[in-house]
């Protein structure tokens, strides 16, 4: 039993069925009307916020370098995806994934071009220079013809569905978590821990910094594409510094270096302002007080660096149950978990 629980194929099967199962539950809740139309629509912003937070966590949490221009990459990806789908006339199920892929690639290219010079800096200076780049992207979009200038883009097909968001979230989380458990991910972590020691251990630190930055920007671009095809408009003023700050807040609140924390916190912080709608004017005040409160009382974020693993959780649960039974039988079993 225990060896089965630890075996790789079993873990894969378990995770795959959990992913499909969760999707089925969500769909069922929508079909049966337990989640009303409005609540079902909330799932989409939850989804792209998860992608944004998880991707920012790659640089802020795992690489240990804080970028403050994530919204810039999101907008680049969004505009690229929207411009593609507005000019192409393909069936939705072909057009949207293509648009998202284009959004991701274009944003990743921006990430590469900006990352190469910016990542020579560290810490606060890196934060500031990415903030600068983010603002410049916004101003340039505001002044270009083909992006619609200050008016932005209108009439983008509303193609983002719960299913597409779900697929994108699963792909993002899968790629980021498998990446982090490989030699490439460990190289990224070693830079956060000690850049000089990493370099002395044979890690090409510049390469991995730029890589993490580029991948992070790429996923932000995908999220931007989902955003564009959800709202059906792109307004350059909604990608300013405050948007970057919002994403950062999700990441830090969830826990820097915890993908699971980013997911939990993206869900909580997307729902919270809506749930507080009853308090009308007070909601944003309550939101900011909660934020400051959590940071003061739990500075490492809600989940610290904890990572959830379905297999491990079931494993732990099983040995706990076995522990209870063996204690009843009067035989101590050592209780490894």
């Amino acid at each position: 039993m225990q060896t089965l629980l630890k075996s790789t194929p079993f873990r894969y099967a378990l995770n795959a069925s959990a992913i499909i199962g969760l999707y089925a539950v969500i769909m069922l809740l929508i079909k049966t009307g337990i989640l009303n139309r409005y609540q079902a629509l909330m799932l989409i912003p939850i989804g792209f916020n998860i992608i944004l937070a998880a991707s920012l966590n790659l640089t802020a949490g795992f690489l240990g370098q804080l970028p403050l221009g994530h919204a810039g990459f999101m907008s680049v990806g969004g505009y690229a995806a929207a411009l593609f789908s507005m000019s192409a006339a393909l069936p939705t199920n072909v057009e949207l994934p293509l648009a998202l892929a284009i959004g991701g690639v274009v944003a990743a290219a921006f990430g590469l071009v900006i990352g190469l010079p910016a990542l020579r800096l560290k810490g606060d200076y890196l934060a500031i220079i990415t903030l600068g780049f983010g603002e410049i992207i916004r101003v340039i979009i505001l002044n270009l013809k083909f992006t619609g200038g200050a008016y932005g883009l209108k009439g983008i097909g509303r193609q983002t569905t719960v299913t597409w968001v779900y697929i994108c979230v699963v792909i993002t989380l899968f790629i980021i978590s498998t990446l982090m458990r490989s030699r490439h991910g460990r190289a990224i972590l070693s830079i956060r821990e000690d850049e000089i020691a990493a370099e002395a251990s044979g890690i090409p630190t510049t390469y991995y910094k730029v890589l993490a930055f580029t991948v992070s920007a790429g996923f932000a671009g995908v999220a931007g594409g989902l955003y564009a095809h959800y709202l059906s408009i792109m307004d350059p003023s909604s990608f300013g510094f405050m948007r970057s700050a919002e994403i950062l807040v999700i990441v830090v609140l969830g826990g820097l270096g915890s993908i699971f924390g980013s997911v939990v916190s993206a869900i909580a912080l997307t729902i919270l302002p809506e749930a507080l709608r009853g308090f009308a004017d007070y909601r944003m005040v309550i939101y900011s007080v909660l934020l400051v409160g959590v940071m003061i009382f739990k500075p490492s974020g809600l989940c610290g660096r904890y990572e959830f693993s379905l297999g491990d959780s079931i494993d732990g649960l099983c040995s706990r149950i076995r522990g209870i039974f063996s204690r009843k039988g009067g035989v101590s079993d050592g209780g490894d978990s």
Partner: peptide, 26 residues
């Protein structure tokens, strides 16, 4: 937060900024 991670401090500052803006709006 003086002794904790600098990022937590930064997020707190962003939180205070939001708080002041929204209080003023209120």
């Amino acid at each position: 937060l003086r002794k904790s991670d600098r990022l937590s401090l930064l997020v707190t500052a962003i939180g205070i900024s939001l708080l002041l803006q929204n209080l003023a709006q209120l």
